[in-house]
Write a protein that binds this DNA or RNA. Structure first.
Length: 125
DNA sequence: AGCGTGACGAGTA
DNA sequence: ATACTCGCCACGC
């Protein structure tokens, strides 16, 4: 950073992107957050804006933990994402019997992280 | 200015 | 279960 007349965006992410990535970085292994949840958590922007950030800067965060609300694997990275999920034991919903071409999807009911619980689990049944 | 596009989401058919 | 529509909003043409 040399002079004080440096360009603000020369080596820094846009502020919004930085906040999105910061939240993504908080998601514990084995859990996921949806684009919409992150937007709501930030209180700014919407799911499409979060998605845009992930498109541009997802490589700087655990991108596989930011998912669609329907639990679909990231198009174009399904196998890489699946590898991470199995590595982290993220809850998956196996495809129905016979559907071979279908990869599993995330079990959102169990994998969705609200940003509060630390994985304590237990609080149900 | 408009118009199409997208790592979205909810609703409807 | 899938397909389609509409609302959303930043970006690029």
């Amino acid at each position: 950073m040399g002079t004080m007349s440096e360009h603000p965006t020369a080596d820094a992410l846009p502020e919004y992107a930085e906040r999105v990535l910061d939240v993504a970085d908080l998601i514990p292994p084995g859990r996921v957050m949806t684009y919409g949840d992150i937007a709501e958590w930030l209180g700014d922007g919407g799911p499409r804006q979060v998605g845009r950030v992930m498109t541009l800067y997802g490589g700087a965060a655990p991108w596989w933990r930011v998912v669609r609300s329907d639990g679909a694997l990231l198009p174009g990275h399904e196998l890489r994402a699946l590898d991470h999920y199995r590595e982290e034991s993220t809850p998956l919903r196996e495809a129905s019997r016979g559907a071979e071409g279908h990869l599993p999807r995330l079990d959102m009911r169990r994998a969705r992280w609200d940003g509060v619980t630390g994985g304590g689990g237990g609080a149900h049944t």
